[in-house]
């Protein structure tokens, strides 16, 4: 009788900073338990050993920015029973999606002396724009606690139990005084999904939205409040255009922030 085969895990990288897959290695207390529960099939940042697919679970970091990667994600999807995206790049296109609002040909010329050698699509897009995704972990970077919950849920064959409420709820739970109401500090907390633990307000700064839009974000109301605080429309636009700039709710809010200013 052979031993039951352990689930095979793949960790794949697209355009990103490597921070979300580093979160796996940053689970210092749990790493050896994780690697005891799964076979690492493919995790190039950590190992030079590669096991062939198919993979029971693939964690995908990064966004799609090249034609080659648009093809590669299809191959990974075909090799994966379950596919979970990890982080803002994979779930919303990441900071590099700022090029979606610019001119990529001009960008090439600005950064590179020989732009003809740069292969890059005009956009940076989420993995879910290319293939079906089973679950998305938010954050820039992801939360280790949420990563462990998603891995445990997968190993136990249940759905991950993760909140989609706003950062405001986490501030209340943490007992942090509202920086927006009490100090007039611009804050995206009301429209941003919880998960980080409301770190920024606890450090006397406003949330900058790195977990992306929450389930039902009222961005119009927040935009009005930010302008009342004295923020100029382009500054409001920049606030919505960072690590989740291409998430539909933030993208629409960033466009509305300046469109309203132009209206009579």
């Amino acid at each position: 009788m052979t031993e039951a085969r352990k689930p095979r895990l793949g960790v794949f990288k697209f355009a990103s900073c490597d921070g979300c897959q580093l979160s796996i290695l940053d689970c210092e207390d749990e790493l050896l338990a994780i690697t005891g529960a799964v076979d690492i099939g493919d995790f190039r940042e950590a190992s030079s050993a590669v096991l062939e697919g198919p993979y029971d679970l693939s964690l995908v970091e990064g966004s799609v920015t090249t034609a080659h990667d648009a093809q590669r994600i299809k191959e990974i999807r075909a090799q994966s029973k379950a596919l979970v995206t990890i982080g803002a790049c994979a779930t919303a296109g990441g900071i590099q999606a700022l090029k979606n609002f610019g001119n990529v040909d001009e960008y090439r010329r600005v950064v590179y002396a020989r732009p003809e050698y740069i292969e890059s699509l005009a956009t940076s897009t989420a993995i879910a724009d290319h293939v079906p995704v089973d679950f998305e972990l938010r954050g820039c970077p992801i939360s280790k606690v949420q990563l462990l919950e998603a891995l445990s849920a997968f190993l136990q064959g249940r759905a991950p139990n993760l909140p989609n409420e706003s950062v405001c709820i986490e501030c209340k739970r943490r007992g942090t005084v509202c920086v927006l109401v009490a100090h007039g500090t611009p804050c995206l907390g009301p429209v941003t999904q919880a998960g980080c633990g409301a770190i920024c307000p606890a450090f006397n700064r406003g949330c900058y939205g790195c977990f992306g839009p929450q389930g039902t974000p009222n961005t119009a109301s927040l935009t009005a409040e930010l302008k009342t605080l004295g923020m100029a429309p382009p500054a409001v636009q920049r606030l919505f255009r960072t690590f989740n700039a291409n998430a539909p709710a933030f993208k629409a809010a960033s466009e509305a922030a300046v469109a309203e200013a132009k209206a009579p």
Binding site: T65, I95, K99, I118
Partner: peptide
Amino acid sequence: FEPPRFFEAF
């Protein structure tokens, strides 16, 4: 073959 991300541009 890390894809370019154009930080200096944006």
